[in-house]
Design a binder for these strands. Structure first.
Lengths: 138, 138
DNA sequence: CTGTATCCTTAGGGATACTG
DNA sequence: CAGTATCCCTAAGGATACAG
């Protein structure tokens, strides 16, 4: 059972994300869904960090409750389920990219796949375009 | 006592930040130091979220061990200590700004101070300049 | 394949008294 | 002022067996 009533220690935006992502596992699921092409329970379960079945199920449900991911049945197999991001979930991309960039810069042991960094540069370019476009409007 | 030997579940950059920030308190200290002008133990202690003394002390030590913050004695008062960011700590700014932006967009109850958002826009503009400058180099 | 249920252990954390 | 030291308790999480 998932508790809907969260403590809500404050109305700070930093604290707000901690209420959802302030644990050791949730962000890894987001990573797998965002960067590793994983979509199913079994795929998430097979990650390097060895999450256990009950924790994974609880986190998936929580992310669904928070409307960060959605669950649907696979088109070909009705007993298989696929998870995907909502738009709210997709909006986590800039955060994930900045986290990746920070780790790549400050931890030599971190193994950052090249596609991470190229994706990051692409996103920053897109950001630049968005801002330029916005400036044109003014 | 702080354990130096971390589990290090994987070499993933997302997992790397979780080893340091994957709890409910650490990021709040970063926030107070970065956005609220707090520098001392007593100031951190007085935050809305009511961190307890032992937890705060442990987290400050941990951030120091990870070379994200530094501790020095106050110039005027030798029994007072001031915490400040290392360059590694300052590099957390883009992450913090993106987190703030995400919360501001997706949570109506979040109370985001205006200075947060203006600071965010400034940082994005600076980022744009950096990219343009970099493009000129090529 | 996608989870539940259960057991059990440990780590995280609140409260509070105390110290240099 | 800036922490330590304890006590205690709950929640988080690992392992594993089982189920639709």
């Amino acid at each position: 059972m998932i508790k809907n009533s969260q403590a809500c220690r404050s109305n700070c935006p930093i604290n707000f994300v901690l209420e959802t992502f302030g644990d050791k596992w949730t962000l890894l699921i987001v990573r797998d869904l965002m960067f590793k092409g994983k979509q199913s329970y079994g795929e998430f379960l097979a990650s390097d960090e060895k999450i256990s079945t009950n924790i994974l199920a609880e986190r998936l449900k929580r992310l669904e409750d928070h409307e960060i991911i959605e669950k649907r049945t696979a088109p070909d197999n009705r007993s298989k389920f696929l998870y995907s991001f909502t738009s709210k979930g997709k909006d986590l991309l800039p955060i994930m990219l900045e986290i990746t960039a920070w780790s790549a810069k400050h931890d030599a042991t971190t193994n950052t796949p090249p596609e991470f960094l190229s994706m990051f540069e692409n996103a920053r370019e897109q950001l630049m375009k968005d801002i330029l476009h916005q400036l044109d409007q003014d």
